[in-house]
Design a protein around this nucleic acid. Structure first.
Length: 1003
RNA sequence: GGGCGCUUAGCUCAGCGGUAGAGCGCUCGCCUUACACGCGAGAUGUCACAGGUUCAAAUCCUGUAGCGCCCACCA
């Protein structure tokens, strides 16, 4: 009859089988259906650059748990999948590869060809990433997969840009940006890292004009920027320099005369010489100073490639580092060099090219975040309000602070990147030098015509832009007319018209976050009024990492409010980080990652998922010690700290002495060495748990012969049945509450403990006897099946593969099941109803009674183990307890092993206290276990005395407590009562022990 | 420098006002006919440190130290 299950769970077979099954049945596909409530999550789109790592495993497992749970609850659940084009990252990777393979740069290939190549890369990696997600069991609606650069998303990007441009939120300006001279693009602050680098700290002096032999001394780490100095700055209150303020100095390198100014923010009298050179175009602080003192001017001395521009005078064309040496040499020769100190200086590097960042003045596009001139809240404020007033809630709550603090700075958002891979900025510009009035007029007329012809498709901003660099150097006071025309998404004809007029499209692309920011609505088809958008938006919850609260979460709220006047999601759940064994974040540069696919391979997807859920506690990041499995002999080689910092590329197996390279999601390129797979003990729990579930079900299936579904009467159930039903109902409630509060680790713990420690260790064990008894068997079967049914439902969101395997097996043998009245089980556990058992099932009385039974059993087992009583030996047990307890105890007899006799003091003194016995003293009963011929009275006395001492100590503590007047006065009555009861109990136990010890000593 | 978090059994972590918990590891005994990815029993902790609040503190407050993360800055 029963389906035969193997002895152990085979995750690989299950994964293969059920992935296909789910896909075929389209359980994860969702269509708008106004009759049902939606539950929607949009995936944080993984970058197409890389491989999935543990962070992804965690992030996506948690989303899947929520989606699967809500789906079971009857929600129309949609998990929208997709990937992110990740501008800089992807372009850099592909460029690097092309250079390695073909020795060609992007300039050799040209824009079109490079972009084509990146698309090829994207197609390959997107497929791989989505496949990895599938392997994890993610129940996404794959038919809806989006990509941040696909047509649907592109349209949303252009539409948003157009609206923001039209409304004056997007502007073009000159700003100091982090310039990557190697990739020749600006990079965002978060795309840089700072590293202490060996550098110099030079001190120079400039001669003060009109004051012979007077110099002003200053220090710098970048001497070449002297060429771009436009002032020297001192603190207004600095007595040493007060008399020099307003004077000028001459830069010896180029003879330029620059003022000495006072600025209390820039200059710190405590630091260095107290005087600072000011290079507005190449230092963020100096730039800020220039904004306070615009009269000093600003001079850009760098070209985009990192060489000096014509403003560098005789150094023009030299690389900035060469120029640095040359400048130092010239200053030294001219006698203005005061000394050099070797120093470790913190230097900003580009994360992508690993080259030092240059602060660089360039044209960029910005989104204005500040409050509006008309006093209405600006974009930042609007975005903050959504969280302040609770339209968006953070879990855990404390993360709202990061969000609000960051937005509170209301810093403009630089959205342009000098890349080729991304959404091209939909602005055409005309910035020729001023022409003849006639020419300009005809052009203006044409522009006006265009605007009236396509009123909703084109916005032209004609701005008088003062080019700060030029105005101070070549054409003081002159202005350029600059036309910026933004074209709406479907304005093809207009673009050509503009180009005919001499307009050129801006070559830059948008910051990746600009398109990611639209993700919750762009994926649903916005700006089209699609049924999806109407039905699924706003989404239910966003599950993400704390690192991108500002970069991504805040900006999604911003664009959601701006485009739809509605937040993109109700809840934001921020999960912990997975750290390595030494408490450091996992990253490619540290080489300390773990590949989730290795874990799936070794432990199964269910184990990976269980591990991820168990790790997701509310406050703490989680460490994950890993080992490499030697590819030659399979030996586990633990990863040590030194492996991390050295970024070890080769390890030698301590057992077989053969070399291999360590594993991870980012393995080094080395075809010579075999790569290790990685293991971590932390996933054994999940693997073992899956196996436990498997075998519990296997046991049932072996004992379901003759199973007949029928209603069970709760009131007539034996104690253990009432107990397991009560525990199941309690557990289901607690699991639901934990999920509602995003307390994932608790979910894992609850399900595990109930299944293992209660259902398997006690209930199944107790059912064994009943299953042999034809009278008791049918009921035992019904309750067993009913409880297992509930467990599989509760397990499904976390471990869907094993749950489905067992559900299907159970469906073959017991398709009609459930408590108290059976019904036909759903065809898949994925779409089974989430358990919500009636409150009447829960009985604290029954649970307390059963706890006492457990205590009883454990006590006897303890004695058995202490005296190494073998399984043949028959015990005599005498218990002092009530009739009811006695009945329970008799029922429990099989647990205690063979019994000669069992008796009770209060149920009837039919059994005399055994002569040679071990004593059990427990809160609810006293028992003596007869151990004729086995007992060692001396040992028993010794043990008893120790126990007695402990109890007296405890008693003394409690008595003292009760003697404390403040305690009696202030502590809650029930606490005092509990203490009193405890004291009475211990006193009773002490008496029993004392008597027993006396008996023992007397023989 | 600012913010946030962490410090509990050898390891990884729960607990977050009323007598210290789990998994792994360890000790002892078990191939008990679901499971050795298992069963039963056991040992193991001044809950980082110092103050404070309270009848009562691992739990709340303040400070110190160490670790981590985020943000800012470093002429």
């Amino acid at each position: 009859m029963a389906t035969e299950l193997d002895k152990t769970y085979d995750p690989k077979a299950a994964q293969q089988k059920w992935l296909k099954f789910w896909e075929e049945r389209r359980y994860f596909h969702s269509e708008p259906d106004p009759a049902r409530k939606p539950f929607t999550i949009v995936i944080p789109p993984p970058n197409v650059t890389g491989a999935l790592h543990m962070g992804h495993a965690l992030n996506n497992t948690l989303q899947d748990v929520l989606i699967r749970w809500r789906r079971m609850q009857g929600y129309n659940a949609l998990w929208m999948p997709g990937t992110d084009h990740a501008g800089i990252g992807t372009q850099a990777v592909v460029e690097k590869r092309i250079f390695a393979e073909e020795k060609k740069t992007r300039h050799d290939l040209g824009r079109e060809e490079l972009v084509r190549r990146i698309w090829q890369w994207k197609d390959q990696y997107e497929k791989r990433i989505l496949d990895q997600l599938k392997q994890m069991g993610c129940s996404c609606d794959w038919a809806r997969t989006r990509f941040t650069l696909d047509e649907v998303c592109a349209r949303a990007v252009r539409e948003t840009f157009f609206r923001m441009f039209r409304d004056g939120y997007i502007y073009r300006g000159k700003r100091l940006v982090n310039w990557d001279a190697h990739l020749q693009t600006s990079v965002a602050d978060d795309e840089t890292y700072t590293e202490d680098t060996k550098g110099g700290f030079w001190t120079f002096k400039y001669p003060v004009n009109g004051m012979p032999d007077t110099f002003i001394r200053f220090s710098t780490t970048r001497p070449e920027t002297m060429l771009g100095d436009t002032a020297v700055c001192v603190h207004p209150g600095d007595e040493r320099y007060k008399h020099l303020i307003g004077k000028t100095v001459t830069i010896p390198l180029n003879g330029r005369e620059i003022p000495i100014i006072a600025d209390g923010i820039l200059a710190d009298p405590e630091l260095g010489t107290g005087a600072v050179k000011v290079t507005p175009a190449h230092d963020p602080n100096d730039y800020a100073c220039w904004q306070r003192h615009p009269e000093i001017g600003i001079i850009n001395i760098l070209n985009p490639d990192g060489t000096l521009s014509e403003n560098g005078g005789k150094y023009a064309g030299q690389d900035r580092y060469k120029a640095r040496d040359a400048v130092v040499k010239e200053m030294e020769e001219k006698g203005f060099f005061e000394g050099k100190e070797d120093r470790m200086v913190p230097l900003k590097y580009s994360d992508r090219s690993k080259t030092p960042i240059e602060p660089y003045l360039s044209d960029q596009w910005f989104v204005k975040m500040a409050d509006r001139d008309d006093g209405k809240p600006g974009l930042a404020q609007m975005t903050m309000d959504a969280v302040s007033d609770g339209r968006v809630r953070f879990f855990p709550e404390r993360y709202a602070k990061s969000y609000l603090d960051w937005l509170g700075e209301k810093r403009d958002w630089c959205i342009s990147r000098q890349l080729w891979w991304g959404h091209r900025i939909p602005v055409w510009k005309l910035d020729e030098p001023p022409g003849t009035p006639e020419k300009e007029e005809s052009r203006n007329n044409r522009l006006i015509e265009l605007q009236s012809q396509y009123p909703d498709k084109i916005v032209v901003h004609a701005q008088a832009i003062r080019d700060e660099v030029e105005s101070k150097t070549k054409h003081p006071g002159s202005f350029f007319a600059l036309y910026l025309a933004c074209v709406a998404p479907d304005g093809r004809g207009i673009e050509e018209e503009l180009e005919a007029l001499g307009f050129v499209q801006d070559p830059d692309v948008l910051d990746t976050w600009f398109s990611s920011a639209l993700w919750p609505h762009s994926t649903l088809g916005w700006p089209e009024p699609t049924p999806e958008l109407k039905y699924y938006y706003p989404t239910s919850v966003l599950v993400t990492n704390r690192d991108i609260i500002t970069l991504w979460v805040a900006r999604m709220v911003l664009t959601g409010l701006y485009n739809l006047n509605e937040v993109p999601f109700r809840h934001v759940y921020i999960h912990p980080k997975v750290m390595d064994a030494f408490g450091e974040g996992m990253s490619k540069s540290k080489g300390n990652g773990v590949d989730p696919l290795d874990i799936i391979d070794l432990y199964g997807a269910d184990a990976l998922r269980y591990g991820m859920v168990a790790i997701a506690t509310e406050t703490q990041d989680s460490r994950m010690p890993v080992a490499n499995l030697c590819p030659h002999c399979g030996e586990k080689v633990p990863v040590k700290q030194e492996h991390m910092y050295m970024r070890t590329k080769k390890l030698t197996c301590p057992k077989c002495k053969k070399p291999f390279r360590p594993g991870g999601p980012w393995p080094q390129d080395d075809p010579e060495l075999p790569t290790a797979k990685q293991a971590s003990d932390r996933f054994e729990i999940g693997r073992n748990f899956a196996n436990k579930l498997w075998n519990a079900t296997r046991f049932l299936l072996m004992n379901l012969e003759g199973y007949t579904p029928a209603t069970v009467n709760l009131a007539e159930l034996p104690t253990e049945d009432r107990w397991i039903v009560s525990r199941l109902a309690t557990t289901a409630r607690e699991v639901t509450a934990a999920l509602e509060g995003y307390r994932f680790a608790e979910v894992a713990r609850l399900v595990y403990d109930f299944t293992w420690s209660e259902f398997c260790d006690w209930y199944i064990e107790m059912s064994k006897g009943r299953l042999q008894d034809p009278a008791a068997r049918p009921l035992a079967q019904r309750v067993l099946v009913g409880v297992l049914d509930g467990i599989l439902r509760l397990v499904q969101p976390v471990m869907p593969f094993v749950a489905e395997s067992l559900w299907q097996a159970l469906n073959e043998v017991a398709p009609e099941r459930g408590l108290p009245t059976p019904s036909r089980a759903e065809e898949s556990v994925c779409i089974a109803k989430w358990p919500d058992y009636p409150a009447e099932w829960i009985s604290s009385t029954v649970e307390a009674r059963f706890a006492r039974m457990q205590e009883l059993v454990r006590s006897v087992r303890e004695v058995r183990n202490r005296y190494q009583v073998d399984s043949q030996h028959k015990l005599t047990v005498v218990v002092k307890c009530t009739q009811a307890v006695m009945m329970d105890f008799v029922a429990l007899a099989p647990f205690i092993g063979p019994l000669a006799r069992i008796g009770s003091f209060e149920a009837g003194p039919d059994v005399a206290k055994p002569k040679q016995s071990a004593t059990i003293v427990r809160p609810d009963f006293e028992a003596f276990v007869g151990l004729a011929g086995l007992i060692d009275p001396a040992a028993e006395v010794k043990r008893g005395e120790k126990q007695l001492a402990d109890m007296r100590k405890q008693l003394a503590g409690l008595t003292a407590k009760l003697g404390n007047e403040s305690y009696r006065k202030n502590a809650p009555a029930e606490v005092v009562k509990e203490t009193e009861e405890k004291v009475a109990e211990i006193e009773g136990q002490i008496r029993v022990l004392e008597q027993t010890l006396k008996d023992l000593q007397e023989g």
